[in-house]
Design a protein around this nucleic acid. Structure first.
Lengths: 329, 329
DNA sequence: TTGTATGCGTTATCAG
DNA sequence: CTGATAACGCATACAA
């Protein structure tokens, strides 16, 4: 059953059917006839044929650092919510989570061209110079999340200020000796910017920065636990620890508890991310929350704008808020 | 740049180029010429045109109950891992997580036909009779995960035996008064089968089943907490609680701790799922683990087999194992 | 406005 | 084994 059959049944040319299908004006009498046949037959135009001639697939490519259950899931949820409504589908891919040479990103980008996706949402992890250079020559509409790359429109998290606010918050509670166990600077936003926020927060509070109270690591499992171990060994007393992200905080609290510190009585611990289970952790984790679902929605609308060639797309910064729970006093 | 251009440059017909492209035998001399031009130009055949004539898209549709971060993420990871290698892409969709009338599944199924996906992996939540009936008439290759639907090939979890093993395990530790806070029977495998395993486990251990010690609920957030509250109120003393899934266990432990019970000293709690953070929970949660990544891989291979018309596809049952941690003594 | 004819970029058919 | 040509199913330029 194709457009030809419909045309015959309705007694018009297939061009007319095509016009009805695409909402182009035709004589009402014809339109009515065609519509009736359409209804009777339940005919659906063949998407593949349409794609071939229109060169549009209603496909959006997504590059994630990981498919493991974490905040990226919310981002995807947000994107799916707005894109599904607009008839777009997501093709989700990942590049190796801890891959320092993240250049399979380039392969993915090529793959998306082959797939004729209309746009790309890229959530970068570590970004290599090669990737950047390649992106500069890349033709497809693309927005990034969490990092600004070249001139691409981006949805950004206010990592720096979030981090600074955490320090302010702790200082306000009376903490003066605040340790930082975070992420390597390689990860620009979640690593460098958060650390910078921490340092400037201290500075503004008139607290001297003690380099030995600042530890960074990667995203390996259990890194919080291990880092906390090293940290506590080498540093004397601290009244609060600022963890680079919530899962890091879990490990830290785990270790602290194990060696006899009480959280938060002896040491307060605060995270960033407001991970799904932080509310259920013991003690429930005070954290900073970004609205990840909204992030996905914003990114989705942004890439659609880009595809539709709405110029003047502005970067969007996602707000944060401190979620007070029981791991900080 | 299309196949015609290549043909001209190589001095052969486009049919010959097509043959070279598809590994069909041609005179070596021609093949060489074509290959050289292919290399020089970096030409890639247009996927959309291929799709139109071959009616194959290398697309797999996935229906998930939710995109929130949880075990489904691992399933997707497993699927992506094997499918990406074979050139297939995933289109991931969700139907409303708690939607009792889950019949947007039917819409999704229609959508997949429109998209010309080659096969479908369906992870059902609640399955309505309408959905079942519709699936009976459905044409596309489809496998399910976690539930057996009609005659479709399925990857199943051994929920019944996992559940029974938990009871055995608790009984062996000396528990005789074991409560069950689980999922509604509507959810067949995770609800009914797990509850059945619990009951038969007790029966075989010679322990009488006390209906008042068995509570079930849905997947609403915080249900563990709320259910535990009702449970403890109405039931007297219990030495162990079997939670229908890990996040339920979090809520239960939270509540118990809050009202002064110590876990595991006063009451042991065990979950199912081995959720990502159960190891970090306080106390770390004893649970039953299914290999979800493997589940995804198995499902992926299964749907590929189905697509390739390998008959004789057998259901696969995913093993479980008890992960002993600190919430049970 | 309508219908005819052509194009989209492949693969498949069939005669040579 | 090769090449011309017809599908595939639709959109659209062009002529009527």
């Amino acid at each position: 059953m194709n457009i030809n059959d419909i045309a015959k049944m309705a007694g018009v040319s297939k061009a007319t059917v095509s016009r009805v299908l695409n909402g182009i004006k035709v004589k009402p009498e014809y339109k009515e006839k065609v519509d009736r046949v359409l209804l009777e037959t339940g005919y659906k135009p063949n998407r593949l044929a349409r794609e071939l001639v229109s060169k549009k697939t209603k496909l959006i490519g997504v590059i994630l650092p990981s498919l493991k259950p974490n905040v990226y899931s919310y981002i995807v949820e947000g994107m799916a919510k707005v894109l599904q409504d607009k008839g777009y589908s997501l093709i989700i891919t990942t590049c190796d989570e801890f891959n320092v040479k993240e250049d399979d990103v380039i392969d993915l980008l090529d793959f998306f061209i082959d797939r004729h996706v209309e746009g790309i949402v890229y959530v970068p992890n570590i970004i290599t110079e090669e990737t950047k250079a390649y992106i500069d020559t890349y033709q497809l509409p693309m927005v990034t999340i969490g990092e600004k790359i070249n001139g691409l429109p981006a949805v950004l998290f206010d990592d720096y200020n979030a981090s600074k606010s955490i320090v302010d918050y702790l200082v306000k509670l009376g903490h003066e000796s605040i340790g930082y166990i975070g992420i390597k600077d390689e990860y620009h936003s979640v690593g460098y910017l958060r650390r910078l926020g921490y340092m400037n927060g201290l500075k503004e509070a008139g607290i001297e920065i003690d380099e030995s109270m600042m530890v960074t690591t990667g995203f390996e499992k259990n890194n919080g636990y291990v880092a906390a171990k090293d940290f506590i060994k080498s540093v004397g007393q601290v009244t609060a620890i600022f963890a680079g992200y919530d899962r890091m905080a879990y490990g830290i609290i785990n270790y602290l508890t194990k060696v006899g510190y009480k959280v938060p009585e002896d040491i307060s611990v605060i995270g960033i991310d407001d991970d799904d289970v932080s509310a259920y952790f013991t003690p429930s984790l005070t954290s900073v929350s970004f609205d990840y679902v909204k992030t996905g929605q914003v990114a989705a609308n942004m890439i659609i704008d880009f595809i539709k060639e709405n110029l003047d797309i502005k970067d969007q910064v996602i707000d944060f808020k401190i979620i007070e729970r029981n791991s900080v006093i």
